[in-house]
């Protein structure tokens, strides 16, 4: 059932995001060419050159920002309107549990974020490519050769994997924090959006003070040992320190994610009141 829900989440976003991603990639390419042109001609005076060099760049930056904001807005909207708005009449009468709904939305949102990130990457790559294909390819070849010669420390693969997991879990807990805030806002009878915002800010504040407390509690000594490991331990020491640091982040975010998930689930199960 979760798979089916995710399928419909994606059906809802294709038409809006695909052109944006395509536009981003295209603009990256265009910018590569225009910047090359401006640099080659070495003239920055003159209105036409100015427009040629700067305008596409501005458009690119604007599109980057818009896409980022749109992704966030879309994710919030899909939860707020899609589950707690009039679409909720359709969703909550499906033979699907609230846990499945929350998971499906979370996974779809994560995928959307990843895809948008990939679009950013693609755009940047195309820009560099258009700028200087030869230089780019040579640079890549050199980099790979250097990597192959480099004695990779053991466990680098694990570290990278841990990094990815850490990124995912952190993203998930951030998403679930948004969902929990929206669910908390739903408990009010009016101005629910406002209350949701307040809830989000409130949770963030609680978290940051909590971290602060933890930090001052006794982390001082742990931090010292951690720093020692980095400074004295060489590459291996640094790696294990990073692994430990990331492991810690994973644990905390996992715990947060679970708390937010159950908070949201309980509110949806017991306190649903669509209007």
């Amino acid at each position: 059932m979760i798979g089916k829900l995710i399928k419909y989440e994606f059906r809802s976003l294709w038409r809006r995001f695909l052109p944006l991603w395509a536009g981003l990639a295209a603009l990256g390419l265009v910018n590569g060419f225009t910047i090359t042109h401006v640099l080659e001609n070495n003239r920055i005076e003159g209105l036409s050159n100015f427009l040629l060099g700067v305008l596409p760049l501005i458009m690119l930056i604007v599109l980057f920002t818009v896409l980022g904001v749109l992704t966030l807005v879309f994710i919030c909207q899909r939860f707020y309107q899609g589950l707690l708005g009039r679409e909720g009449y359709l969703m909550f009468t499906l033979p699907v549990s609230s846990a499945e709904h929350i998971l499906a939305k979370t996974i779809a949102a994560l995928l959307l974020t990843v895809l948008t990130g990939l679009a950013f990457l693609l755009s940047g790559t195309l820009l560099v490519l258009a700028l200087d294909v030869k230089g780019f390819l040579e640079g890549m070849r050199d980099a790979f050769a250097a990597l192959r010669q480099l004695e990779l420390p053991r466990g680098i693969g694990w570290l990278i994997t841990e990094g990815l997991v850490c990124g995912l879990v952190t993203a998930a807990s951030s998403l679930l924090q948004i969902y929990a805030a929206i669910a908390l806002g739903h408990l009010a009878s009016r101005h629910r959006a406002g209350w949701s915002l307040l809830a989000y800010v409130g949770i963030s504040m609680i978290l940051s003070t909590g971290v602060f407390q933890l930090g001052s509690l006794g982390m001082g000594r742990a931090m010292e040992r951690w720093l020692d490991r980095i400074l004295d331990g060489g590459v291996n020491g640094a790696m294990s320190a990073m692994a430990a640091g990331m492991g810690f982040m994973i644990l905390i975010n996992l715990a947060l994610a679970v708390v937010f998930f159950f908070l949201t689930k309980i509110i949806l199960d017991k306190k649903l009141n669509l209007e």
Binding site: S12, R86, E87, Y89, L90
Partner: peptide, 18 residues
Amino acid sequence: GVDTKELVSYLPDREYFP
């Protein structure tokens, strides 16, 4: 609950399509 929702077909007094 989830079981009974399989048996129940509901038409609300409002539109619910996205």
